[in-house]
Structure formats: structure tokens, C-alpha cells
Amino acid sequence: MVFDQSSLLLQQLVNGITLGGVYALIAVGYTMVYGVIQLINFAHGEIYMLAAFVALTLITQCHIPFFASFFITIGICGCLGVVLDYIAYRPIRKSPRLAALITAIGMSIFLQNLALILWGGQIHSFPQDVLPKIFTKIAINFSDVIVTWLEVFILCVTVCSMFILHYIITRTKIGIAMRAISQDKVTASLMGIPVNRVISFTFFIGSALGGVAGILVGIYYNAVFPTMGYVAGIKAFAAAVLGGIGSVPGAMLGGWVLGITEVLGAGYFSSEYRDGISYAVMILVILFKPSGLIGKPLPQKV
């Protein structure tokens, strides 16, 4: 009896870690943009949703193999982020923050409904034969805890993306430029950093990671629909806040904590309030500890 329960718990933990990794990927996008230009990029969730749709279209309509379309989609999403920044956020960079926030909400609605027009409101799914066969096979079966190769893949991609991101931020020149801008935009521009280009790059990286998450979730749940970005976006934002917005390691940690909390909460508490758990976590964190889990003490802002 106890054995069964603990294996259930383990299974839920595995699900939570998978989901949390995805949240972490999206949350990184939020937190990077927030770190650089102090804007909650509401439209980030929509980029995640568009990624799933683009990948789906590439695979089913253009018949491009899965891994190729995976990378093409990531590129497209990154560019989409840059375009978003260019047309929506750059013109109002000097206006009050509320104006930027309202613009972000506007863009979010615009993109969501654009997807609704282009692809329709119904739930799409990836046809099973186009995905690599190995995804559905079981990788680990340890006392009733089943881990599929898909989950392993998601985890690997997530962790790899994180490491690449960490390398970019801490070791490369552009990463240092990002951190400089997050400290002080004016001084950074005086030091000869091309501020707008670096911000565009930040959007590129953030959106590309969001795109990765979008494809992964699309094949994990095998459901792609226009409103998927809205809920996931908010949850990822909750994760970013939980970790401490503006801090990249915080976003990663927050993503996993939130993912595990949500899955465990849905399993043992109430599956109807699954989304509510993340909202509640978000509200409580903002009210009681706005700096998040590792916000202030580790000021690695980007």
C-alpha cells in the first residue's frame, strides 16, 4: 500500500519535473526581457503558442522532418520576438511603464486572435507517424514509475538550453552587454554598447527558448490550440516571479518549483483548481516576497 502511494508520488514528481522544465524555459524569456527593459512581455506566451503552430504546420503541411522543423521553428520564433520588439515596444521605450504594459497586452491579444484566424479555434494534434517513434517508448520503468523517451528528451533539451543560456549570459560579450544594460541603460550606451541591438538579441533568445517550450509542450500533450499560450504564459510568469523576476537562475528554479507544486497539487488537492494553484502562488509571492526566492541576494540580472 505504502509502496503504491510512493510510486504514485514519484510518477507525479516525474511529470512535475517535465512540466517545470517547460515552465522554466518560458519563464526565462519573461525574466530576461524584464531584466533588460523592465517590461512584463505579456505577448511572450503567444510566441510559445505560435511556435507549436508553426512546428505543426511545418511538419504536416510542408512535410519537413521533425528535427529540422524543430530548429527552423526556433529560428522563426526568435525572429518573431525581434519583430515584436521592433514594431511594438521600441517606439514606446521612453513612455511610462503602464503604456508599455498595455501595449504588451494588446500584442498578446492580437497574436492570439491572429492564430485563431489562421488556424481556427479547434484543438490540433501532431499526427503520430511524423514524430520520432522512440518518443512513445518507455525509457525507464522503475517500480511502476514510467518515464518515456519523450520526457527524457524534454528534460535533456531543457537542461541543454539552460546551459547554453548560462554560457551566453556569463561568458560571451553580448551576455555581458545584456547585464550591463540591465544595470543602467544610459551608462551602457555611453560605454559604446549598441543598446537596441542587445535588446533585440535578448528578445531573440527569450523567444527562441519560448519556442522550444512551445514545441515540447505541443508534442507532450499532443494538443495545440490558440489559447494555450495564455495560460502557460501566465504560469511561466508566475514561475519567473516565484524565482525572482530579473534573475535567470531564479526563473529556472521557479519553473521547477511551480511545475512540481502544480502537479502535486492537482494530484492530491484538486485537479479543478490546477491553474488556480499557480495564480495563488503568484499572488502570494508578489504580496509577501516580491523579490522572489532568489531575487535580491543573487542579483544576476539579465
Binding site: A88, T103, I105, G106, S108, I109, F110, L111, N113
Partner: peptide, 8 residues
């Protein structure tokens, strides 16, 4: 969609 565009 229109509302989004109006906001922006």
C-alpha cells in the same frame, strides 16, 4: 484582434 490593435 481589433481591440489588441487599438491598444497598441
Amino acid at each position: 484582434l481589433i481591440y489588441g490593435i487599438i491598444l497598441v
